[in-house]
Design a protein around this nucleic acid. Structure first.
Lengths: 220, 220
DNA sequence: GCGCCAAGCTATCGACCGATAGGCTAAGGA
DNA sequence: TCCTTAGCCTATCGGTCGATAGCTTGGCGC
């Protein structure tokens, strides 16, 4: 690991993420991963002590920056609608720009495994923070009084599916797709539809503040 | 199978659907299913020739009525917005009322397996018909000119996540959740937000016509 | 009452799984 | 130069997988 600066470890992560996306975690064997990397199956264990830790590393690469982003959106000042719009844009763009194929990470229900409890907790935290943001917007009269949990789930589902779409037919740039998602959600939840242009303008000024919270992990 | 009128077969399907939802298809063994049903593992093969056929039966129970519903929505007369609203309501309510736990059916990427090609094709057909409905609405100036594929994926993601939510914390009745989904999507895509009340009223008259297209499968 | 057969059972198969043990090799530091 | 050790290798483990073979049983039609 020290010799190559973690290059092999990263290749394992990249290939594993592709296979997880294609066949799911349980449907992918450590031999499958090793074959793609170009090594023997036991050699994987020079870099990861268990198969679960491969998935954990991939999940963390997504979850840790994502949590930083939603926290940034919560801490920023101003109207909730603009912060939500900016957050969605940054989140989608960031996920679509990850070096890993994240499509398979949340498909399977492996997140319930006790070995991934830490990651499951991180994800729950992101959901809680998202709900908090929505709740603030509803309480302040900016957003339609939908059930908060429903809106959070709607956003989660939208993000997951947009990510899944990328692999099948990557239509449009990440930035364009990110704007689509943000617009779609805000049109749905914004109480006064006439404010959408204003929300977009305010969001544009917030995007850099949220983006810089998430330090992208460089991978060869 | 003939003696009990397929009762055991249905119990296998019910228990399998719950386990698939909990651990995914690959994460569930035929022994797990047999244990829940209360029989030995090889006895499963008196009702299903392969494990894939269990999943295929579950998928068909969802996909076949779903295809009928979207076809009905396409064939009905009147504005697209109302038809889309009605379709979404009926679809969500129908899925939430299924005797099976459908949460795990589309999580894994087993649908790519050649044994499930027929089901994959059915699902693709549903997506195509949905896109057609949206395209009509955009062309007719009723809906916001989002990318058609994006809207279809957004709807798919929303439906999947709402279904997933049910198992975790079933908040609200199926009908209430169905209305939430329909409202959320139509607020997002309706060009003139002021028409929403009218769309809802028109949709209410269409709901029976779409519902009756889908014959629910009785299961004990 | 008797034969048929669906539907269960036990026993077992070969394949594949994740993981471990232990050896070889080459790069890097003393 | 020699020692350490990261990073690969081969060989192999026990466990579990989906699936098959073949026996037993009990309800039904005749």
């Amino acid at each position: 690991m020290t010799r190559g600066g973690g290059a092999t470890r990263d290749r394992i992560l990249v290939e594993a993420s592709r296979l997880f996306a294609e066949r799911g975690y349980h449907g992918t064997s450590t031999r499958d991963i090793a074959d793609k990397v170009g090594m023997r199956q036991p050699s994987i264990y020079s870099h990861f002590a268990t198969k679960h830790l491969i998935l954990a590393a991939l999940l963390d690469a997504d979850l840790v920056p994502a949590r930083a982003r939603v926290r940034a959106a919560l801490d920023l000042p101003g109207p909730v609608a603009a912060r939500l719009h900016a957050y969605l844009q940054v989140d989608v763009a960031a996920i679509l720009s990850l070096p890993y194929d994240v499509r398979g990470l949340y498909n399977d229900d492996v997140l319930r495994a006790p070995e991934l409890a830490e990651q499951a907790q991180r994800r729950a935290e992101i959901h809680d923070l998202t709900r908090e943001l929505i709740e603030t917007g509803i309480g302040g009269g900016e957003l339609v009084p939908f059930d908060t949990g429903f809106v959070q789930h709607a956003i989660t589902g939208l993000l997951l599916e947009v990510v899944r779409e990328r692999g099948a037919a990557p239509s449009g740039t990440p930035a364009a797709r990110a704007l689509d998602v943000a617009d779609f959600v805000l049109r749905a939840v914004l109480l006064d539809a006439r404010l959408l242009d204003d929300v977009r303008a305010r969001a544009a000024t917030l995007v850099p503040g949220i983006s810089t919270m998430a330090v992208p992990r460089p991978v060869g």
